[in-house]
């Protein structure tokens, strides 16, 4: 655990989380959610949880983003709020 690095990563995680729920274009929101997952992965590497980090990078940031893009391609891309 390195305190300044942790604070910077937490700041970026917050920016990504707020952007993912406010952007109206759903494809952009999903891609930002993928970036959020990768930043979480860096945060866990910094907390010495490397197994969780590479599981997050492959499963949540990889397969999760692919599943959500597939669902958006079968439904609508625009959102009202």
């Amino acid at each position: 655990m390195i305190l300044p690095f942790n604070l910077i990563l937490v700041l970026f995680v917050y920016i990504c989380a707020i952007a993912a729920i406010t952007i109206r274009d759903l494809l952009s929101a999903v891609v930002i959610l993928g970036a959020y997952s990768f930043l979480m992965c860096l945060l866990w590497t910094e907390m010495a949880a490397i197994d969780v980090a590479f599981t997050e990078a492959s499963v949540s940031a990889g397969i999760g983003t692919v599943l959500m893009i597939g669902a958006i391609s079968k439904t609508k891309r625009r959102s009202k709020d």
Binding site: A17, A20, I21, L26, A29, V30, L33, Y36, S37, M40, S60, G64, M68, A71, I72, T75, S79, K80, D81
Partner: peptide
């Protein structure tokens, strides 16, 4: 949020 995909994104952030 009223959009269902937005709700699912919120659920993902909650679990993280």
């Amino acid at each position: 949020k009223r959009n269902l995909i937005k709700k699912i994104i919120g659920m993902n952030i909650f679990q993280s």
